[in-house]
């Protein structure tokens, strides 16, 4: 339980650009290094956290729940949100004070490509739980293209992904 809290607390401070950017690292720790869940379970927990409304950080509470029930879920959520929330509290105050400072604008510009690269890596890892093949490439590419090029609701895109899974993976 303590281990869970500490690992997620550490991940919390690495999650620049949101939780998506630490998905590969979380997968590495949770699946490959600690063996808390297996790779297929990890993708399914991610799918549940995507299907439910709310921040996808809730995948952490699902992993905690798998390990130790409700208390595990709460501990995991506190771990992944706590340190980042404290940092946000502190930096939020500083940010309001240095609204127009040049260093602030510089840092913001620098971090943009880094966080985009991490988001792409996160999407790739989630979409290829058992390695890249034509089926997951097709679903992920169609989903990405639809989100990018149309105004179709993400909810419908996820539903279409579910339908495609039914056709391709049964």
């Amino acid at each position: 339980m303590l281990e869970l809290f500490l690992y997620f607390g550490l991940l919390s401070l690495l999650a620049v650009g949101g939780v998506s950017s630490i998905m590969p690292e979380m997968q590495r720790i949770v699946v490959e290094s600690r063996g808390w869940v297996n790779a297929a379970e990890f993708t399914q927990l991610f799918a549940i956290s995507q299907a439910a409304p709310g921040p996808n950080v809730l995948i952490c509470s699902l992993i905690g729940w798998k390990l130790a029930g409700i208390s595990g879920a709460l501990v995991a959520l506190a771990g992944i949100c706590g340190p980042a929330a404290l940092l946000a509290w502190w930096i939020g105050g500083v940010w309001e004070r240095f609204r127009d400072a040049p260093w602030r604008i510089l840092v913001q510009r620098a971090l943009q490509p880094v966080s985009i690269g991490f988001v792409i890596a996160g999407g790739y890892v989630i979409a290829t739980p058992e390695g890249l093949d034509w089926r997951n490439a097709l679903i992920a590419a169609a989903s990405a293209a639809t989100l990018y090029a149309t105004r179709v609701s993400p909810l419908r895109i996820l539903a279409a992904g579910g339908a495609a899974g039914w056709l391709l993976f049964r």
């Binding site: 991610f46 799918a47 989630i126 979409a127 989100l147 899974g165 039914w166 993976f169």
Partner: peptide, 30 residues
């Protein structure tokens, strides 16, 4: 149920695709 597993896998992969689509939107100015 294999059917349920298949659907949930499909949703998960499409979710990964949403990340890619979002990254595309964010990345265009760069």
């Amino acid at each position: 149920q294999p059917g349920v597993r298949a659907v949930v896998s499909g949703i998960g992969i499409a979710g990964g695709g949403l990340f890619l689509g979002t990254a595309l939107k964010l990345g265009v100015p760069l």
